[in-house]
Write a protein that binds this DNA or RNA. Structure first.
Lengths: 154, 154
DNA sequence: CGGATTGTTCGGACACTACCGAACCAACCG
DNA sequence: CGGTTGGTTCGGTAGTGTCCGAACAATCCG
């Protein structure tokens, strides 16, 4: 197994841990390492050794998650796929909705527990922690965007 | 179903999405909402309606993840469990190791792809993005710690 | 010592998900 | 048109993880 294949397999494992399917993860890995950053379904299926039905669902999953974009070059008959620009920052932004959700959960918890002080203290801490993150994390991503752009243009 | 029970169930769903088991998530929810923030296994098992064997593994899982601590009051015969201080920040810190792992994965990818410029650009971006996060996210958590402490002692 | 209580471990049942191959649509082309 | 190609959908299957009840080990108590 060549070095690139090894990287693809490992990327599959990593992304699987993030909630994607193994196949989706390997597809991302392959796109990352491919020379022009694009591929079509049969190409990917062949390289990764998965059925075309599986590729179909995996790619649609990735498209739905906003990690790849599907496009069709003029005159071509098959779709091609390429990674979204700065996929990873994008994945982070998606995960951020989680912060708000947790904060809201804590808020509902607060309504549920009435006014016993212990639970209130814990749930308020939870709510504020996730509120803090929901507020501050986007700023961090913005700073990364700046750093990225400033490096691309000099 | 009372409001608290509803909160517990919902918390179970949330934490399950983070990779914990459903039962573990519900246990956390129950501890969050409980009046003194502690419980023993049979208490939890009774409330949540799960077998004591399941409680045993769930609690050990949580203990291993550093989210709860097990202790035994003097003269008592059964263990009790309480949430770790600021569980959520703790969970975040644990997740941060992920950043380094991804950065390292990208680095290995770079070694694999040789010197074709396209893949190199993508993988360098990935490496640097996670590197940036691994560097900056701890600072964010530190700022949260400060904010938390400054509010506890005014 | 027994007997009882607490916690862990084990085997089996169950649900869930990813995957495959086959069947199925839709678009294009000779 | 009929045939070919690209893509989706569907039924069945294998693998994984969670849970339960039962058996087990360890500790305490009368």
């Amino acid at each position: 197994m060549g070095d690139v294949e090894e990287f693809v397999e490992e990327a599959g494992l990593y992304f699987e841990r993030l909630g994607l399917s193994r196949t989706s993860g390997r597809a991302i890995g392959w796109l990352l390492a491919s020379s022009d950053g694009t591929a079509d379904a049969s190409e990917l299926g062949g390289r990764l050794g998965v059925a075309k039905s599986s590729m179909s669902v995996a790619l649609r999953q990735l498209e739905g998650a906003g990690l790849i974009v599907r496009f069709r070059p003029p005159q071509e008959r098959r779709d091609r796929y390429r990674l979204e620009e700065d996929v990873f920052a994008r994945a982070f932004r998606a995960k951020m909705s989680e912060f708000d959700a947790f904060s809201a959960l804590a808020q509902r918890g607060l309504r549920a527990v009435g006014d016993s002080p212990g639970p209130r203290r814990r749930l308020e801490l939870m709510r504020d922690m996730y509120g803090f993150m929901a507020r501050e994390f986007p700023k961090l991503l913005d700073r990364w965007d700046q750093e990225r752009e400033s490096r691309q243009s000099p």
